[in-house]
Nucleic acid binder design. Structure first.
Lengths: 247, 247
DNA sequence: CAGTGGTCTAGACCACGTA
DNA sequence: ACGTGGTCTAGACCACTGT
């Protein structure tokens, strides 16, 4: 009921949104509202905060997105118990990774050739690729040590300009990022003993434990590129974080 | 200007929200609105769709969250070029993982003892833990094969009831999920050659490539648990996906 | 049936930043 | 200065669902 006055006497530093969001999340995370607790309805909250139902509704929508509550018509909104361990994995540019370690970065194009797509490429792209592909192998170095082996296929139907690119200034991954939009990516991460081929290119012994990341990138259902990154030994570590509150 | 009639002649199956969202995303992903393109203002879109500005605003907020556009006051809303390779990594319950493979799941508590915290524990928890911890080793099996070795520390100051739990019904990870809220988790993922100790417990050869996931979980700045999961060989693969459209 | 969330409206004022 | 997004209101109707 006391609509405008309250927002004037209150610190105008943050929006009403933010204030309500913060207070509700605080109640949930502090355990004052434990898992299973039924939180006040939109109408009750709107009355408590002296604001419209719409405002409360938008806030609750955010808390749903954060995974802290779930809502059921007629029943109400309930605090969820902590659920799956999902986390945001950030996969950085290799150059940035190396520089963050304080090492000098360089790369060598070991091979780069245009060829028709093979049946085996379909396994990599999960969908059939007609037409030519660019098959590239790059060695990324940190200082004088090999940091990562990159084996990449680029769908030339989707990115024809890659066919004439020499990748002298930018490694293929960085070059693609500047040129091509992408809308979906799937990553597969596993440990693998280094094969004879990979060991030779990485300049390590055969059978060493490697972290392998495979990434399929597509744009509007069209495959763009497939890349396999092989990090030898325990040189490399992926880090993923989760926090429910995201503003 | 053709407001209500359109939404009536149109299939009423989806909300106006969803229709506008879909059409705008389609324009962006199809390349009709390329990166850098300035999309119509809220007012223009509201007129085009014959709806209120509020409705358009909510839709655009979603597209911002999806990372497809960025908005600047006075300037307008612009299509972003594809940015960092971040992805959502979902780390499932081990039992669920095994069952999804169509295998029988079981686990054995190999050791479980209460002890005071050591200096070495601080490295695992990244912050100091005073007081007792519960030190548990669990072997998870898929069929008759060892699927994963779990080495876990639980901060008994934060979760005192774990001290008397026998973990007969639920493995420690699942038990914790049902009992303890958590607000932050950090994962580290790497490849590692199996140590003598781990190889013995996993019943595999020494030096085999293993996928190692370490997870630190905390609640309101207080460490809850540290766990190291070791998956032998290439038995296990993590999958992470990114798609900008999420509703 | 009644209460709840889901959606939508037609306005409004303000903050900000570019022109 | 003015157009844009950011926020907010006080209503409204509908769909769903638990009692």
């Amino acid at each position: 009921m006391n609509n405008v006055p309250e927002s004037q006497t209150q610190a105008p530093s943050q929006s009403l949104h933010a204030r309500i969001l913060g207070e509700l999340i605080e109640r949930i995370l502090s355990g004052e509202w434990p898992p299973g607790y039924r939180i006040p309805s939109e109408l009750e909250l709107a009355n408590q905060y002296g604001c419209s139902r719409m405002t409360v509704s938008k806030v609750l929508t955010k808390i749903v997105q954060a995974g802290l509550i779930e809502r059921r018509r007629k029943a109400g909104s309930f605090v969820r118990r902590p659920h799956s361990h999902s986390a945001v994995l950030e996969i950085k540019d290799i150059k940035a990774e190396v520089l963050e370690l304080g090492l000098a970065y360089s790369y060598e194009i070991m091979s780069c050739r245009k060829r028709p797509s093979r049946v085996s490429d379909r396994l990599k792209f999960t969908v059939a690729v007609a037409g030519p592909v660019l098959d590239i192998v790059v060695r990324h170095k940190a200082g004088c040590q090999t940091f990562c082996l990159e084996e990449r296929l680029i769908n030339l139907r989707a990115v024809p300009e890659a066919g004439t690119e020499r990748f002298n200034e930018l490694a293929p991954g960085a070059w693609l990022l500047t040129r091509v939009p992408w809308t979906a990516a799937e990553h597969r991460i596993r440990a693998e003993a280094s094969s004879t081929e990979a060991a030779r290119r990485l300049e390590v012994e055969v059978g060493i434990a490697c972290l392998v990341i495979e990434r399929r990138t597509s744009w509007a259902e069209q495959p763009i590129t497939f890349v396999r990154l092989t990090y030898p030994g325990d040189l490399h570590e992926l880090i993923a974080r989760f926090t429910p509150s995201q503003a």
